[in-house]
């Protein structure tokens, strides 16, 4: 089937990895046949996955060496347990030795795995530290977000530490998930079943509008590949992040916090920025990017 358009949203972690990198270039590290499963899930007699829900390895993207990790949203919501987290952290630390052009994190996760609470929390902090270490060594880390679990909890924080975030419209990014907010604060605060509202607050379009996501792409694996390839080319020439860059980012965030302090819905942000809100959610990705002035 030559005209098949492979949806990133619906693909498994392995299909995403293989569709993203150069053909036959992926070499999995710590592969499923080693059966590095979660001891915590085993002690609870819960189902295990031989890869603990994350695929890590090296590959080439448009000929450049990269490292890549992909979370499997279909296994425990892509949640980060001890083994899962160690695989991602190990990959990021490997980057310090092998010096790839970039590390790609295909995030699809609700955050820490509840059954492994403390081990998972530690794992997240280790991943965060490893991302920063890699960046200070001049290795950019890109987050790609377009799976059904989005990037929430600790993985939402990790994503925001990355140099770039590529999202599809279906992707979601946030700290506490909508259901968690509703449970804690009540349905008046956030109606998690109002899907349109959830996407207007956490979805790819609003995250791109706010500048948190740096690219918005169609829900197709080749679209993610194209975006990652273009970013890679840019970073070959780019100097590492400086203190000045970080301070500027901090300044922009402070400014934004003031500007949108009273906002409770993404639509109000679009209204302020584009003086139009109703049609934004319905725009195609390319029309939206054009409106934003983004290059394809």
């Amino acid at each position: 089937m030559n005209r098949r358009r492979v949806s990133y949203f619906e693909a498994s972690a392995r299909v995403r990895v293989h569709g993203l990198v150069d053909e036959n270039s992926f070499v999995e590290l710590c592969p499923a046949e080693l059966r590095k499963t979660s001891p915590h899930l085993a002690s609870l007699d819960a189902p295990l996955a031989f890869d603990d829900g994350v695929v890590v390895g090296r590959a080439t993207l448009a000929g450049s060496a990269i490292l890549i990790a992909a979370q499997e949203g279909r296994f425990n919501g892509g949640s980060v347990g001890e083994v899962h987290g160690a695989k991602i952290r190990g990959l990021l630390e490997l980057a310090l030795l092998t010096k790839p052009v970039a590390v790609l994190l295909l995030v699809d996760s609700g955050g820490v795995r509840l059954q492994e609470a403390n081990a998972g929390l530690i794992a997240i902090s280790e991943i965060m530290r490893a991302v920063l270490k890699g960046q200070s060594a001049g290795i950019p880390v890109f987050a790609l977000i377009g799976g059904s679990c989005g990037a929430f909890g600790g993985m939402g924080i990790v994503a925001r530490l990355c140099n770039e975030i590529v999202m599809s419209e279906q992707g979601r990014l946030g700290l506490s998930g909508p259901e968690v907010i509703e449970t804690v604060k009540g349905v008046e605060e956030f109606d998690s079943r109002d899907r349109a509202l959830v996407w207007r607050i956490t979805g790819g379009k609003i995250r791109r509008t706010l500048g948190e996501a740096t690219r918005l792409v169609d829900d197709l694996i080749p679209a993610f590949r194209d975006a990652a390839t273009r970013l890679l080319a840019r970073y070959v020439e780019l100097p590492p992040v400086t203190l000045d860059d970080l301070q500027q980012a901090q300044h922009r965030l402070t400014e934004r916090t003031g500007r949108f302090a009273e906002v409770s819905d993404g639509q109000q942000i679009w209204q302020q920025i584009f003086s139009e809100s109703a049609g934004i959610a319905g725009l195609t990705v390319s029309d939206f990017n054009r409106l934003l002035g983004d290059q394809p």
Binding site: M1, R4, V6, S7, E10, E169
Partner: peptide, 18 residues
Amino acid sequence: CEATRDLLAARSIKELVL
């Protein structure tokens, strides 16, 4: 093995709108 959802001309209501 070819019977995947990627064969559907639209996979969501949004794609129908488009």
